[in-house]
Design a protein around this nucleic acid. Structure first.
Length: 125
DNA sequence: GTTGTGACATTAT
DNA sequence: CATAATGCCACAA
């Protein structure tokens, strides 16, 4: 029985896991230009509630060839997930601003209406 | 198989 | 604003 459990875990690691990862990639790729969403929000929309961390992981392992708009994904409250001053942090700010998103002290303005709307209903206005 | 870490979130101090 | 406690879970050591 332990053996079975372990085997299941191993299986999940290789094949199945990427299905969830792919679901997340899909959601991220669907983010409209100039909008932002959160890790938890993306996970939820991908059908993976409470798996914000997985979103982070998915982005980390995402192949560059996908050219995902990772910069449109921020932490809860609009915070940039990277430490202030880090290269990644600056890069994300830069990209966001280039899309017209206001970034203030490592925090993006999540227009309330748009915020909750986007999180609960997707960007579909 | 256990442990520590992490592009997280939420709630409570 | 900062910390801590929980929850969640993939991954590497």
């Amino acid at each position: 029985m332990r053996v079975v459990a372990v085997r299941q875990a191993n299986l999940r690691q290789s094949a199945a896991a990427s299905a969830e990862i792919r679901a997340i990639w899909r959601e991220v790729a669907a983010l409209p230009r100039g909008s932002v969403s959160t890790y938890g929000g993306i996970a939820a929309r991908a059908g993976l509630p409470r798996r914000a961390r997985l979103t982070g992981h998915a982005l980390k392992v995402a192949p560059k060839s996908l050219a995902l708009p990772w910069h449109r994904v921020v932490a809860a409250g609009g915070r940039i997930a990277f430490p202030r001053g880090s290269a990644a942090h600056r890069e994300q700010c830069r990209r966001l601003r280039a899309e017209g998103v206001e970034v203030i002290r490592g925090r993006v303005r999540l227009p309330k209406a748009q915020d909750l709307d986007a999180l609960l209903w997707g960007s579909a206005r």
